[in-house]
Design a protein around this nucleic acid. Structure first.
Lengths: 194, 194
DNA sequence: ATTGTAAACTAACGATTGTTAGTTTTGTGT
DNA sequence: ACACAAAACTAACAATCGTTAGTTTACAAT
């Protein structure tokens, strides 16, 4: 039997995610993480090699989920509106299933060391570029308003990226309904159309 | 002559803002701040009482700018659309003039100590509540779409709050034009209207 | 020239940091 | 019952943390 070791490691990572989300990577000590698990700090090293490894697993793991999701959307032959709707669904789904990891993804990525830092930055810029190309094509084909592409890109992306901060405390909205509402707000705006 | 002391203190605060924005409050040491100013860490204490004081000045200062701006908007008798446009202008102006401080406002507020922490949380929840009431009234009076108020609120607010992360590297857009573009994207959406 | 003070310095403190070494406990397969 | 390995432990390390005490430097007012 040897499958056991991975369970404890996953426990360390998920517990660390929660703590990193609350206070940030730098403000959480190995002793904090250990205490949350009911063990001593030195015992963590039976499962992980360093504090940095925990951070890498958290960030790279969820970053790759966004990348693979985006690749699937880019390679479909749906129209622009449908692709944008799928991106919104992607973000809501990843957020709901990895809420704690998104804190580190957004705020602690700069504490990654090489080569993980460069790898993360590559994934992020590729993701943004895929998103940008979808918007550009949408404008060109007359599906989107002819507005500044960067403003459109980062307005939508900012909302999607910080969804993890506020979806949790809004019990009134379930995932399915959240997706519906966000598609309307992000794509059609909030001002009443005549 | 005694007005000199405030200059150095402001230098410490603005330099700290830049460093906190890059790596976060917890990852920046007093020695890091001192080195950026070309002095030794102990010398900082001729001007400030603690690292915490620096953080308080940064966060409370910019939080109060948002609060006073929002109060002015709430107390005007403009219609909903105009109020929302003024909120967008407020965020763009504060962001352009306090770009570095917004990093701490968004990511380091949890490292405030009492009583500043409670004060900050009060300002923030009051700001959100003012924003919420504007949206609610807009829906009631038929100026805004009858969508979920929380989704509308946090979608717009998320974009405005993280503007500091991306406006800087987009040289192609000046402030005036940025405001125009953001009003259109946030209020009218990106999908082409017939 | 002398004085006063703002603002820098050196040196050090106790606490905490991530991590390592070596040891003991725990639990499972034979 | 025994052996083995996983996973916990105690103890300690060198480095760094925020901060204090005491001293020196720089410069403006008298």
């Amino acid at each position: 039997m040897k499958i056991k070791i991975e369970n404890r490691k996953e426990e360390i990572v998920t517990t660390s995610s929660k703590l990193f989300k609350e206070k940030g990577f730098s403000a959480v000590s190995m002793r904090d993480i250990a205490q949350s698990l009911g063990i001593k700090a030195a015992s963590l090293y039976n499962h992980i090699t360093s504090k940095q490894e925990i951070l890498s697993i958290i960030i790279i793991g969820v970053a790759e989920k966004f990348t693979s999701g985006m690749d699937r959307i880019v390679n479909s032959d749906d129209d622009t509106i449908s692709k944008l709707e799928q991106i919104i669904e992607l973000h809501v789904n990843v957020t709901v299933n990895n809420a704690d990891a998104l804190g580190s993804l957004n705020n602690d990525w700069m504490h990654l060391l090489e080569p993980e830092l460069s790898y993360f930055l590559k994934l992020r810029s590729q993701y943004e570029e895929s998103f940008r190309q979808i918007i550009k094509l949408g404008v060109k084909q007359g599906e989107l308003e002819p507005l500044n592409v960067e403003v459109m890109l980062f307005s939508v992306l900012s909302t999607l990226r910080t969804l993890y901060l506020w979806y949790a405390k809004k019990e009134g909205v379930d995932t399915k309904e959240l997706v519906v509402q966000m598609k309307k707000v992000l794509l059609r705006g909030i001002v009443l159309k005549p």
